[in-house]
């Protein structure tokens, strides 16, 4: 491998190992949480609700998978950065010739992998119990990757901005959780009053969930082309801002 790519490659590998070493917390736990949601909601609502012509439980699974993919992609970069900052060991990376772009890509790629691994875990367990169609696999993959990249980048911003763990918890609880719960994971937004339908259209999570689900059922609330454009567009805008922030050395190089 070219010597000057070995730096970011090593950082990427280290970030992968970091979550894999504690995969009980970082992979098994979120899979378990998603399955609990599935159990409870499907038990309460199955038979009463049908969405897009499929049973409620079947409808629920892709949304739960995608929600976990997104939350875990965010958790990976944000928690790694805040921990390294609080522990002080981020200097080991800051002392190296790794550029801000390489730094960004390494953390981003590790976040995407974490998101995909958790998503795959939930999928594999869920299909033991429920028949889940796959209509457009490439759409599923495209949304999983762009979505986790978007949230991975968001996690980098949050990890760099936050100085303390409780600031990070506020990020999780007041931004990530509401956006993911109000995105149509548990319902089709067509079942909402018009006002809330409009509000949902400003939530990027809505497009990620809907597009991802489209890949399974071949139908959704909105065209997947629009969703993918919104998600990819958001990713590019956020990445550009993140890179500007990293380049300036904000909070990292005083």
């Amino acid at each position: 491998m070219m010597a000057n790519l070995r730096g970011p490659w090593t950082l990427f590998k280290k970030e992968l190992l970091r979550f894999w070493r504690v995969s009980f917390q970082t992979v098994a736990a979120p899979v378990m949480t998603a399955l609990l949601y599935l159990l409870v909601f499907s038990h309460v609502l199955e038979g009463r609700v049908q969405v897009h012509g499929v049973s409620y439980t079947t409808f629920l699974i892709p949304g739960l998978i995608m929600m976990s993919v997104l939350q875990n992609a965010f958790a990976n970069s944000s928690s790694s950065l805040i921990q390294s900052k609080v522990m002080g060991n981020l200097v080991f990376v800051l002392l190296t010739p790794i550029s801000y772009l390489q730094f960004f890509l390494a953390f981003l790629a590790a976040s995407v992998i974490r998101g995909l691994v958790v998503g795959l875990g939930i999928y594999l367990v869920a299909i033991l119990f429920v028949d889940l169609p796959i209509t457009y696999p490439w759409l599923i993959l495209a949304f999983a990757i762009t979505g986790s990249a978007l949230l991975g980048a968001f996690g980098i911003v949050a990890g760099i901005w936050a100085d303390k763990f409780d600031q990070m918890a506020a990020f999780q609880n007041f931004i990530i959780m509401p956006l993911s719960f109000l995105s149509g994971v548990f319902y089709s937004i067509h079942s909402l009053p018009p006002f809330w339908q409009t509000v949902s259209h400003f939530n990027p999570f809505f497009y990620m969930i809907d597009g991802f689900r489209y890949g399974f059922f071949g139908t959704g609330d909105i065209s997947p082309a629009i969703s993918l454009s919104v998600v990819a567009g958001s990713f590019f805008v956020l990445s550009w801002l993140t890179l500007k922030m990293l380049k300036s050395g904000y909070k990292l190089r005083g």
């Binding site: 730096g7 280290k14 002080g88 200097v91 190296t96 010739p97």
Partner: peptide, 19 residues
């Protein structure tokens, strides 16, 4: 400062790898 996830040799290999 230290990284609590890894052992001494791993950290040294990573550090060399970053360079």
């Amino acid at each position: 400062v230290f990284d609590p996830f890894f052992n001494v040799r791993e950290m040294l290999r990573f550090q060399a790898g970053y360079f």
